[in-house]
């Protein structure tokens, strides 16, 4: 699994950080998403998939 984000679309809702804190964080200054692990291990794939689904701005892409 590869994780990529469109930071322009990110609205800083923080859903991804709530669901998959191992993989996502937020910039302190504006809450925009930071990807901590672009190729996360299998054990967090389910939560990363949920984070992508929950993202209100559809800013997370998985491949």
């Amino acid at each position: 699994m590869r994780v990529s984000v469109e930071t322009d679309k990110c609205c800083g809702a923080g859903q991804c950080v709530l669901v998959a804190p191992e993989v996502f964080d937020q910039r302190d200054e504006d809450g925009v998403v930071i990807v901590l692990d672009e190729a996360p291990p299998a054990e967090v794939h389910a939560s990363v998939t949920e984070a992508a689904q929950l993202c209100p701005a559809a800013a997370i892409a998985l491949s």
Partner: peptide, 15 residues
């Protein structure tokens, strides 16, 4: 919208 919203998103991060 997002330009204006980002004035405040840093104040509402999970951290």
């Amino acid at each position: 919208h997002n330009e204006q919203r980002r004035k405040f998103t840093g104040d509402f991060t999970i951290k």
